[in-house]
Design a protein around this nucleic acid. Structure first.
Length: 831
RNA sequence: GGGGCCGUAGCCCAACGGCAGGAGGCAGCAGGUUUAGGACCUGUACAGUGCGGGUUCGAAUCCCGCCGGCCCCA
């Protein structure tokens, strides 16, 4: 039925597979979506980017949605005639490749690059308007050497540093885990219980940028989803309060605690240090040592989330020591507990049980005193078991008595400062970014450890520090230290500083480092002497539209923002925020649930494309609802999309057969012309507002109007039909590129429909000779009038009151008021 | 516990505070066309916007409280 003769597809019905083959080959030859670097090219530039994929196999439904959405944005910019940068690459370092290599006795690169090739072919088939000349893979040495270069610049600025600290440790995978990889205290990958372990690890000092990460959100307001900004704010968790120094009996230096409620200082009745902080060990008296050690073992098995959960029974150990409250000299017991985190604040708190629920729970569990210092008008917490964190006048607080919260905070900070025992302070929930990983398939950290010189950076001219290529399969199996440690030839090197025997750092970087700056590399992907060409980044950056899943709301997006600010401080980029606008697409689910093997409800993208074709799958994804909503595949119909594509295609074919390009539309049917231009206007507005489902609905209406014009109107030879068909081809190109390209060709045009063909509606065709005015009597619709769009309100009111129907409903009652919203509505309010 | 988002026909979804004869679509029903199936064309029924208040000439839309679902932070 389908005759493919060389480049020509003969069928007059829409044949998805034939068109895919034909146009994919054409695009591959002509590269219509390559960004221009010609200095003489003065078209406006735009940069549209989807979050790059991890090569975990072939593309799946999630990619289909994200890239369909990003492609509409990019293709719209192409249609407007802009010089668009729309690149692609792969986030190709990571643990799955390593696990596959261990299982198969191979090298992670084999699995990784095979998957990348598969995905690349799938992207081409999917018809995404990508610039293939800028393709990058983060696992290429040409890419990851710049991770190392950037690390060294961070190191020079003290933004990369190594410290001993408690980390999440998975005993099964034998590696540290990032916080996001710990779910309910268990390793998300293997399900084993995560332990806390103290290790010497590398960190990026993101906390130094906490305030700027907060302040610069102003630039993103209105352009990023509000909930992402909210999540980042919460994650950073800035809180203001005071640092207060408590003297500890038998310790020379006082211990500082951070509190958001320094006004309640007189209500502190005990003192708590994090059980796993070094301070707990230090303060513990010999007779309590055994208790503490046992307790610590128990605590090490809990996640931070569990530890802070209010529902949990409070636990702790008295350390046999006393602290002195700096304002009233009171001697209060020092406890170690797990509900205080070693990393938050200073790892110690003053406990005010009357006004903090967790402190109160602890006090009631261990029979510690509770003293109210804020008069809240609620019941005594010691009796009710409910702390009163609200506001009120201070009491039992010496000089603070009678003050309100704000006044009391200001006053107590003054007092503390005068005595030199405290100061106003800001605390953050955000912690420094732990970047070491005991994994193989990542970027080696370019540091050499020398017994004499310490941490010595690998000189720039020795970058990249490449991964050794002689490790395979079992060599990569987890053994508690990085697999790189086993590569003796690789590890043992001369110290670049003194020439003595030294060893390479054997950890690799968190793969979030790779994705924190890849969008800059796309501007000059082949630059050999720098991570990116500063001038090119100035020309293209920042990204106008970024598209990706909300699961990256905090990590990737926060890290990228951090990197951009550091690079700004280094003078390498001219902007402080990398992504001007952000769109979070929803998930593709099935039958109300996330797709999973165990549920057996997976939908395979390749199979859907086999059945319905690329255009229909893309159209289904875009038409199903707003892009940020989840799509339940059980609720949508790719078959219906295919049906629509057939209708649209036939209109283009029939119009193409009946008239030639250049037919004067002003000679055509006015009613259809109006429908065409109104559809064009509405589609434009909807696309710009990212309401792609609405844009498709308007396009469907236009196809129906064109169909009627052909069948029971002026006929296919009318120039207005051609105009409609051309607008259909141009607008359809955003959603269903194969059908649009073929339709455009059938309409007699050479070249791709996709570039620079968007049209501006003719204003005269958007106005209507008359509009329907609704006339209400006391807000109920009683009559309708056909009036001129520019009718004067006075005239409209006169006409409305002259209506017989309206008069009959007024029925002699008093007209209290007449609301006139010309030309659409009149409301006659009667008594 | 705190904060946020969302509830519109059987289903997915539209609707600058102004006609819900719902924009569009799915599934349904009835015709037409087709050798048949499918495809195609035409026409249709179905909700009064989760519940209760409030503001307003007028509320799906704004405000308050409840119910249900989802998300973030504790």
């Amino acid at each position: 039925m389908t005759a493919v003769d060389g480049d020509q597809v003969a069928s007059d019905s829409y044949d998805a597979r034939a068109l895919q083959d034909k146009w994919q080959a054409r695009w591959a030859k002509e590269n219509p979506f390559t960004a221009s670097e010609d200095p003489a090219d003065d078209r406006p530039r735009s940069y549209v980017l989807d979050m790059f994929p991890y090569p975990s196999g072939d593309l799946h439904m999630g990619h289909a949605e994200a890239f369909a959405i990003g492609d509409v944005v990019a293709r719209y910019r192409f249609q407007l005639g802009e010089n668009v940068l729309h690149p692609i690459g792969w986030d190709s370092f990571g643990l799955p490749a390593e696990n596959a290599a261990i299982k198969n006795g191979t090298h992670p690169a084999e699995w990784t690059y095979a998957n990348i090739e598969t995905q690349a072919e799938s992207f081409k088939r999917y018809g995404v308007s990508l610039d293939w000349t800028r393709r990058l893979h983060t696992s290429d040495p040409e890419y990851y050497r710049w991770n190392q270069w950037l690390f060294l610049r961070f190191f020079e600025r003290s933004l990369a540093y190594r410290k001993e600290g408690l980390v999440n440790w998975c005993p099964q995978d034998q590696t540290v885990l990032a916080n996001e990889q710990v779910v309910q205290g268990r390793c998300e990958r293997c399900g084993s219980e995560v332990a806390r372990r103290s290790l010497n690890q590398w960190y990026f000092r993101i906390t130094e940028y906490a305030d700027r990460l907060l302040e610069d959100m102003e630039q993103l307001e209105g352009n990023w989803p509000e909930r992402v900004l909210l999540m980042q704010r919460n994650w950073i968790g800035r809180s203001t309060g005071a640092d207060v120094d408590f003297t500890i009996e038998g310790r020379a230096e006082p211990v500082t605690v951070f509190t958001t409620r320094p006004d309640t200082l007189y209500g502190a009745t005990f003192f708590v240090v994090a059980a796993d902080a070094p301070l707990a060990d230090e303060l513990c008296t010999p007779e309590h040592r055994a208790d503490l050690d046992a307790y610590k073992e128990q605590v090490a098995r809990l996640s931070d989330i569990d530890r802070q959960s209010i529902e949990r029974e409070k636990s702790g150990v008295f350390l046999g020591r006393y602290a002195i409250n700096p304002v009233n000299g009171e001697r209060i017991p020092v406890w170690a507990a797990d509900y205080v985190l070693a990393e938050y604040g200073h790892g110690a708190i003053m406990a005010v049980p009357a006004h903090d629920q967790r402190d109160l729970d602890f006090a009631l569990t261990f029979d510690l005193p509770v003293r109210e210092v804020v008069e809240t008008g609620e019941g005594d917490p010691a009796e009710t078991g409910t702390a009163t964190p609200g506001e009120g006048r201070l009491m039992n607080s010496g000089p603070l008595d009678g003050l309100a919260k704000g006044e009391a905070i200001d006053r107590i900070i003054e007092v503390l400062q005068e005595r030199g025992t405290g100061t106003a302070s800001v605390n953050y929930r955000l912690r420094d970014w732990l970047l070491s990983r005991q994994r193989f398939w990542g970027t080696p950290i370019p540091i050499i450890h020398c017994p004499d010189c310490g941490e010595v950076p690998v000189p720039d001219d020795q970058l990249p520090v490449k991964l050794p290529d002689n490790l395979r399969g079992a060599d990569l199996a987890p053994k508690g230290v990085s697999p790189l440690a086993a590569a003796a030839d690789w590890v043992n090197v001369e110290c670049p500083a003194c020439g003595g025997a030294a060893e390479r750092d054997t950890d690799t970087m968190d793969t979030f480092v790779d994705s924190s700056w890849y969008y800059l590399r796309y501007c000059s992907p082949h630059t050999g002497d720098a991570p990116f060409d500063v001038d090119k980044v100035a020309e293209w950056g920042p990204i106008d539209q970024y598209v990706g899943g909300v699961e990256h709301a905090i990590l990737h997006l926060l890290y990228s923002r951090f990197f951009t600010k550091v690079l700004y401080d280094m003078g390498l980029v001219s902007f402080t925020e990398p992504f001007r606008r952000l769109l979070n697409q929803g998930q593709v689910i099935n039958q109300g649930k996330a797709m999973s093997k165990s549920l057996g409800n997976g939908v395979d993208l390749g199979e859907e494309i086999e059945k319905y074709g690329v255009d229909a799958v893309r159209l289904t994804v875009l038409f199903s609802g707003p892009p940020e909503d989840d799509i339940d595949w059980a609720d949508v119909s790719p078959a219906a999309s295919l049906k629509f594509l057939n209708r649209a295609f036939r209109v283009m074919v029939e119009a193409g057969a009946a008239t030639a390009p250049g037919a004067d539309p002003s000679q055509g049917d006015v009613a259809l012309r109006k429908a065409t231009h109104q559809a064009l206007d509405k589609i434009t507005v909807a696309v710009e507002a990212h309401r792609f489902n609405v844009a498709v609905a308007r396009l469907m209406e236009l196809v129906t109007a064109a169909r009627k014009a052909i069948d029971s109107g002026p006929g296919a030879q009318d120039p207005a039909v051609r105009e409609a068909a051309e607008v259909i081809a141009v607008t359809l190109s955003l959603f269903a590129p194969y059908a649009a390209e073929e339709g455009w060709e059938r309409l007699g045009h050479a070249g791709s429909v996709a570039i620079g063909n968007w049209r501006t509606p003719v204003p005269e065709l958007l106005t209507q000779e008359s509009v329907t005015c609704v006339v209400q009597v006391s807000s109920k619709v009683r009559d309708k009038l056909e009036v001129a769009p520019d009718i004067e309100p006075d005239e409209l009111e006169r006409l409305a009151l002259a209506s017989e129907k309206v008069q009959s409903f007024i029925g002699g009652k008093e007209v209290r008021r007449v609301v006139v919203k010309a030309p659409k509505l009149v409301n006659v309010v009667v008594a």
